[in-house]
Design a protein around this nucleic acid. Structure first.
Length: 208
DNA sequence: TGCCAGGCCCTCTTTAGGGCCTT
């Protein structure tokens, strides 16, 4: 099997009604970009109707209103289409455990499943940008000098900025450590090791 | 309408507690 390059992935972001699908929360927007060799070559963005009114807090937080959602298709219909978009790709998300819970929950309701691997840009940023004031997406975008795209807390904009953050971390590894080719599973492993050993891990990668 | 979770990670730790991150 051919090893997956780190810069050919789908970067995704959910907007949801809350924090936990186990307590009744649902997805209301999915945004994703397909990176191929470090370039965004495709985009996916859909609003979806969760079947109940969303709270004023979520309306204010995301800018997505009940008025906007009432004409949108149900989650199951949107997620069936998204399942086709991510098929065959590894995925990246900022605080991926959150997005993965909603991805698995909504795909299960749509009678679909995702079998690929998942890497967390938040965990990775704690190893790569140890000098950042914090590791919120908005802070890291400013810290890394990434151009702002659209509005924070909208799915496609957050996915696109997360994709540029992902690429900036790959560039930083290449420039600082001289790593020529870096693979998805290596970044996944880096995101999970004790961050004190991140420097040693990257030095070992550079030395083969 | 308002509430909720969970994994990572640090430290005044490991027989625990609490902040960070996501909506």
């Amino acid at each position: 099997m051919q090893r997956a390059s780190a810069d050919s992935v789908v970067v995704l972001d959910f907007e949801t009604t809350g924090l936990s699908p186990q307590y009744g929360d649902r997805a209301i927007e999915i945004g994703a970009v397909l990176l191929e060799n470090g370039v965004i070559v495709d985009r996916f963005q859909r609003l979806m109707n969760p079947g109940f009114r969303i709270s004023p807090f979520i309306e204010s937080y995301t800018g997505i209103t009940n008025e906007m959602l009432k004409v949108e298709p149900p989650c199951e219909e949107v997620m069936a289409g998204f399942s086709d978009f991510i098929a065959g790709h590894n995925i990246v998300a900022h605080n991926a455990s959150f997005d993965r819970r909603f991805l698995d929950f909504e795909l299960k309701r749509a009678r679909r499943a995702y079998e690929g691997d998942c890497c967390c840009s938040l965990l990775l940023s704690r190893r790569i940008y140890q000098d950042a004031p914090n590791h919120k997406l908005q802070t890291l975008v400013n810290h890394a000098g990434i151009p702002k795209v659209g509005s924070f807390h909208r799915a496609l904009a957050d996915a696109e900025m997360t994709a540029h953050l992902w690429l900036s971390m790959i560039d930083r590894i290449r420039q600082h450590y001289g790593v020529q080719a870096i693979f998805f599973d290596q970044l996944t492993e880096l995101s999970k090791i004790d961050k004190l050993y991140a420097h040693r891990y990257l030095t070992d990668l550079a030395n083969g």
